[in-house]
Simulated assay, not measured.
Amino acid sequence: MDPQLWCCEGDRPAIRRAYRDSNLLNERVLHALLRAEDKYLPSPNYFKCVQREVAPYMRRIVATWMLEVCEEQKCEEEVFPLAVNYMDRFLSVEPTKKSHLQVLGAACMFLASKLKETIPLTAEKLCIYTDNSITPTQLLQMELVVLNKLKWDLASVTALDFIEHFLSQLSVVREHQPILRKHAQTFVALSATDVKFIASPPSMVAAGSMVAAVEGLQMRMVGTSMMSKTLTEQLAQIIRSDPDCLRACQEQIESLLETSLRQAQRPQHSVTMETKSISEEQDVSTTPTDVRDINI
């Protein structure tokens, strides 16, 4: 028998994934996540109480840039929401200059990719995505600052941690699970770019994303017996929340999707090497933006 070469050389080789461990989807693990999620929630009013220069629209612009970088680099799904959680928790405790916002976002992606990726993003590559407005040394320095302010506690609970638990408890035929998972993950990522969801528990965002995904795919998922109201009540019971609150979260997510789709119809700039400043008049040379989004 001819020997076969099982290893693969290259920049980002294909990763062989382990099977999902069903033992990690039991109620004990779910309850542990529900108990821990509040510990990692950022302050909902940090723009008013902590930040003096950073505004909500700046946070949205940087978060959108982070999402584009993660998508272009084909990062694991967990990297982006985890990086945004780090950024929000940092901004909740540390007044930050708007000129430091992009390097903060890059440092948070750097940390999240180290935690979740087999082959993490490099400092050099992240600097390229800032149009080389920061250096690897500055990025590494910000990384240490973020670690210090977060007290080296990086095991944040994010909305994606709940998606598999919800899928395992819903009456969805096996062949429909991948597309439902993907749509729910997309809603989670989209929610992370919007400041409205900063104060929402990850379990609520995950449940709202799941309901929105099922609602959007209902016509395609033949053999699925879930009705929106029944599903909302079931998930609300799982996360110990009021169904009306969950329904409101779902509607916010769907509204955000509609807004995002309208914006996507406009001509877009590439994320690579085309990050611009929020306003040259404000001397914020390191924060990316789309100039159409600025109202000064």
Rank of each mutant, 00 (worst) to 15 (best):
L111T: 04
R12D: 06
C245V: 08
M221Y: 05
M221P: 04
S285V: 11
K98W: 12
R20E: 13
P120G: 00
F187H: 03
T186V: 13
I238N: 05
V271C: 05
A63K: 05
N295Q: 09
M142Q: 10
N23I: 11
K229G: 05
C49R: 14
K98Q: 15
V214A: 14
D244H: 15
L147P: 03
L24A: 15
Q250V: 13
L67V: 01
D283H: 08
K149D: 05
C108K: 00
V103H: 04
S285I: 09
Q141K: 14
V145T: 04
F166S: 11
V173N: 12
L235Y: 01
L101I: 05
S241F: 04
D21V: 10
Y57V: 15
T286I: 14
F166E: 09
A184H: 02
C108L: 02
L217N: 07
S279F: 03
E117A: 01
H183A: 15
A199Y: 10
A155M: 11
T96F: 06
T287N: 10
L126P: 00
E143P: 03
L33V: 11
A112T: 01
A212K: 03
A63N: 08
L170I: 10
G216Q: 11
T287F: 09
Y57L: 10
V173Q: 12
T122C: 01
A83I: 09
F110H: 03
Y129M: 07
L154D: 08
L104I: 10
L101D: 04
N45V: 11
T186L: 12
S156H: 07
V222C: 15
V173T: 11
I134T: 14
L217Y: 12
H31Y: 15
M273I: 13
Q102W: 04
L25P: 05
C245G: 08
E78R: 12
L139R: 03
N148R: 15
W152R: 08
